[in-house]
Amino acid sequence: SDLEELEKFAKTFKQRRIKLGFTQGDVGLAMGKLYGNDFSQTTISRFEALNLSFKNMCKLKPLLEKWLNDAESSP
Protein backbone atom coordinates (compact mmCIF):
# COMPACT_ATOMS: atom_id res chain seq x y z
CA SER A 1 0.00 0.00 0.00
CA ASP A 2 0.98 3.65 -0.31
CA LEU A 3 1.31 3.94 3.44
CA GLU A 4 3.65 0.95 3.65
CA GLU A 5 5.73 2.42 0.83
CA LEU A 6 6.01 5.69 2.73
CA GLU A 7 6.97 3.93 5.95
CA LYS A 8 9.65 1.95 4.16
CA PHE A 9 11.00 5.03 2.44
CA ALA A 10 11.08 7.08 5.65
CA LYS A 11 13.12 4.38 7.37
CA THR A 12 15.52 3.97 4.44
CA PHE A 13 15.83 7.72 4.07
CA LYS A 14 16.89 8.15 7.67
CA GLN A 15 19.48 5.37 7.47
CA ARG A 16 20.97 6.66 4.24
CA ARG A 17 20.95 10.28 5.45
CA ILE A 18 22.89 9.30 8.58
CA LYS A 19 25.32 7.20 6.55
CA LEU A 20 25.99 10.20 4.30
CA GLY A 21 26.67 12.31 7.40
CA PHE A 22 23.83 14.81 6.98
CA THR A 23 21.74 16.16 9.85
CA GLN A 24 18.02 16.74 9.45
CA GLY A 25 18.78 20.46 9.39
CA ASP A 26 21.31 19.96 6.57
CA VAL A 27 18.66 18.23 4.50
CA GLY A 28 16.16 21.02 5.09
CA LEU A 29 18.64 23.69 4.03
CA ALA A 30 19.90 21.75 1.02
CA MET A 31 16.36 21.23 -0.21
CA GLY A 32 15.70 24.93 0.17
CA LYS A 33 18.69 25.72 -2.02
CA LEU A 34 17.85 23.07 -4.60
CA TYR A 35 14.10 23.28 -4.87
CA GLY A 36 13.37 26.70 -3.44
CA ASN A 37 11.26 25.34 -0.59
CA ASP A 38 12.88 25.69 2.78
CA PHE A 39 12.14 22.76 5.02
CA SER A 40 12.75 23.01 8.72
CA GLN A 41 14.66 20.42 10.68
CA THR A 42 11.35 19.71 12.42
CA THR A 43 9.68 18.83 9.13
CA ILE A 44 12.42 16.36 8.21
CA SER A 45 12.30 14.92 11.71
CA ARG A 46 8.54 14.50 11.53
CA PHE A 47 8.79 12.92 8.10
CA GLU A 48 11.25 10.34 9.39
CA ALA A 49 8.99 9.67 12.38
CA LEU A 50 5.93 9.37 10.09
CA ASN A 51 4.53 12.25 12.06
CA LEU A 52 3.10 14.31 9.20
CA SER A 53 -0.23 14.00 7.45
CA PHE A 54 -0.37 11.42 4.69
CA LYS A 55 -0.86 14.22 2.16
CA ASN A 56 2.24 16.06 3.36
CA MET A 57 4.28 12.86 3.42
CA CYS A 58 3.27 12.20 -0.19
CA LYS A 59 4.28 15.73 -1.19
CA LEU A 60 7.68 15.48 0.48
CA LYS A 61 8.62 11.99 -0.63
CA PRO A 62 9.58 12.77 -4.26
CA LEU A 63 11.64 15.79 -3.15
CA LEU A 64 13.46 13.76 -0.51
CA GLU A 65 14.03 10.95 -3.00
CA LYS A 66 15.53 13.39 -5.46
CA TRP A 67 17.71 14.95 -2.78
CA LEU A 68 18.91 11.54 -1.65
CA ASN A 69 19.78 10.45 -5.18
CA ASP A 70 21.66 13.70 -5.78
CA ALA A 71 23.47 13.45 -2.45
CA GLU A 72 24.52 9.86 -3.10
CA SER A 73 25.71 10.51 -6.63
CA SER A 74 27.78 13.60 -5.91
CA PRO A 75 31.49 12.89 -5.28
Rank of each mutant, 00 (worst) to 15 (best):
F54E: 13
E48Y: 00
R46D: 13
W67C: 03
D70I: 11
C58E: 10
N56V: 07
N37L: 12
K66F: 04
T12N: 15
S45K: 13
N51A: 11
I18M: 12
L50V: 11
M31R: 01
A49I: 02
E72A: 10
I44A: 01
D70C: 04
N56E: 12
L29Q: 13
D70N: 08
R46G: 12
E48K: 01
L50Y: 08
A71C: 05
S53M: 02
K8G: 06
L60M: 08
E48A: 01
R17Q: 02
A30G: 03
F9G: 03
E5D: 14
N51D: 12
D38G: 03
T42S: 05
P75Q: 07
E5C: 12
F47E: 00
N56S: 10
N51L: 10
N69C: 06
E65V: 07
K66Y: 06
N56P: 04
K19G: 12
Q41F: 10
K66E: 08
S73Y: 06
S73Q: 09
S74H: 15
E72S: 07
I44M: 03
N51H: 15
Q15A: 15
C58A: 14
F54D: 08
A71F: 09
N56C: 11
F9L: 02
L50K: 09
L60R: 02
S53K: 07
M57R: 01
F22E: 02
N37P: 14
N69L: 08
N37F: 06
Y35S: 13
S73C: 07
S73K: 09
P75W: 05
L64G: 01
N51F: 02
I44W: 01
E48T: 00
K66I: 06
K55R: 11
A71Y: 03
L52N: 02
F47I: 02
R46M: 12
M31C: 02
S45I: 06
N69M: 12
L68T: 03
I18H: 06
K61H: 05
M57N: 05
N69R: 12
I18Q: 15
E48G: 00
T42I: 15
C58K: 09
K55F: 10
E65S: 07
I44L: 06
E72T: 08
N37V: 11
S45Q: 13
R46Q: 13
S45D: 09
L29T: 07
K59E: 15
Q41A: 14
C58D: 10
I44S: 00
L52T: 07
E72F: 04
P62W: 03
G25C: 15
N37H: 14
P62E: 06
N51M: 11
P62Q: 05
L60H: 03
M57T: 04
W67Q: 01
N37A: 13
K66P: 02
T12Q: 13
N51C: 08
L63I: 15
L29M: 15
N56G: 09
E65H: 09
S74V: 14
S45E: 14
K61D: 00
P62M: 04
D70P: 02
N51V: 07
F47L: 07
S73I: 15
I18L: 11
L50I: 05
K33R: 15
Q41D: 08
N69I: 13
F22S: 03
L52A: 06
L63W: 08
S74C: 12
S74Q: 11
L64I: 04
N37C: 10
F54W: 11
L52H: 05
I44Y: 02
G25V: 05
E65D: 10
Q41V: 07
Y35M: 15
F47S: 00
L52V: 04
A49K: 03
K61E: 03
S53E: 08
F47P: 00
I44G: 00
L64P: 01
S74L: 06
S73N: 12
L64K: 00
S73G: 11
K55T: 12
N51E: 08
I18V: 11
R46N: 13
P75Y: 01
K55V: 12
W67I: 02
L68E: 02
D26G: 06
N69F: 15
L29S: 12
M57K: 02
M57Q: 03
S53N: 14
K59Y: 07
K61A: 09
R17V: 00
D70V: 07
P62C: 04
E72P: 03
L63Y: 05
W67S: 01
P62G: 07
L50D: 04
F47Q: 00
K66C: 08
G25E: 05
Q41M: 09
S74D: 08
L68W: 02
E5H: 14
